[in-house]
Amino acid sequence: MTIRNEIRRLRFEHGEMTQQALAARIGVTRQTVNAIELGKYSPSLEAAFKIAAVFGMPLESVFHYSED
């Protein structure tokens, strides 16, 4: 099971938003945003929706699930 995400690209497209800025907007630490971005931590549904909302995208455009 793999959950990939587009957070790095979306941050770049939103004026090089820093991990710290994204973390502050969704209420987690910068280290947690980094772990999510690298696929080392799967966020809760609430955090995933918050991240998608920050970028103004639907959830499935930010996170992708595949059964590898």
Binding site: G27, V28, T29, Q31, T32, P43
Partner: peptide, 11 residues
């Protein structure tokens, strides 16, 4: 700042 912040879901 980190010390004052509550633990997040990963922590």
């Amino acid at each position: 700042a980190e010390a004052k912040a509550p633990r997040d879901e990963r922590e």
